Amino acid sequence: MRFGKILFLAVIFALFSAQAVLAGPTYDQVMKDKVIRAGLMTDSIPGAFYNKDNEWVGFDVDIAKEIAKRLDCELKRVPVTNKTRIAFVQQGRIDMSVANMTHKRERDKSIDFSITYFFDGQKLLVKKGSFANWDEIVGQKIATMQGTTSEVNLKNKLEELGDTNADDNVISFQKESECFQALEMGRVAGWSTDSTILLGYAAKRPGEYELIGDFISDEPYGIGLPEDDSKWRDTINFTIQDMWLDGTYMDIYNKWYGPDTPYSFPMTEQIEVWP
């Protein structure tokens, strides 16, 4: 009996020790391994997607690469979705989620965030000439992504406009590509999410789609980070600010959202910089 008790305590101690190692500060682990595991989308054009040459590219990809470069680390890219990006941070499977994620107070209960590194807002994409504004599309089926702030914002907007069947008229999908496919096939009359994502997909069919209506929300993107790890959070914040101050941020921004790109989206705010 005594031996069994000792063995049981030894197992518990071993498990606790293993968990303690896994739960160590992210900064220390990253600096030790010289590897940053970044959660990135795979079909969020032009944030993070596979191009025609099957290369994983995009604005978020370049931001993650630059952060890793400045910290003298290798970047390990980990595919995430709208449903997995927070869970992967919580589980320690990634060190940061650079995945067009709006910083919301509700999300901040689960993970921490960097300062805002991108500014967007939610709009509506339709086939060109089909609708002129939000009022005209009330009562129609509209696509959005499941489990996102876009889904909540869209339902609220439709209810505000008097749609008594808003819950049924909001059709939620797992991926951006599925939303666009539904719009192409006529299964929905519109697709609502962050405007830069809509611009990215509209660029695949030049002249066939258009964004209509006013912004219905502000969408400040933050990099998702492990909870209560201030040293790692400060490191990411300082790196973003340094990228802004030396012009690298705007070089990356203009590469993907500049006036000569298919995804032209003028910069609306400045990155927060601490003195």
Rank of each mutant, 00 (worst) to 15 (best):
Y257K: 02
W256E: 03
A189V: 08
K231C: 05
P259M: 03
W244F: 13
D234L: 09
Y257F: 15
G186I: 13
M243Q: 05
V170C: 04
D218C: 02
V152S: 07
W191I: 02
S172E: 15
T261Q: 10
Y221I: 00
P206F: 10
K231W: 01
M267S: 09
T193K: 00
D168Y: 01
Y257Q: 06
D194Q: 14
A182V: 08
M250N: 11
S195Y: 14
D234W: 07
G207P: 00
E151W: 11
D242N: 12
K204N: 09
E176S: 15
G207W: 02
P220R: 10
N165A: 14
K155W: 00
Y263M: 01
E227V: 10
Q181V: 11
M243D: 02
L245M: 15
D242S: 11
D163T: 00
M185H: 07
E210Y: 04
K255Q: 11
D260A: 15
E176Y: 12
L161T: 00
C179Y: 03
G200H: 09
S172M: 12
G200I: 10
A203T: 01
G247A: 10
N153S: 15
R205V: 12
L199A: 09
K157T: 13
E178W: 08
K155F: 02
T268Y: 02
T248Y: 07
Q181F: 08
D214Y: 03
S192E: 07
T164A: 15
G190P: 11
D214L: 06
G200E: 06
Q241G: 07
D234I: 01
S217D: 15
G258H: 01
F215R: 14
Y209C: 10
A203S: 13
T196N: 14
Y249G: 04
C179I: 05
K175E: 14
I216P: 05
M185R: 12
N156I: 10
I223K: 02
P226G: 05
P226H: 06
P206I: 02
N237L: 07
L245V: 13
I171Q: 09
L183F: 10
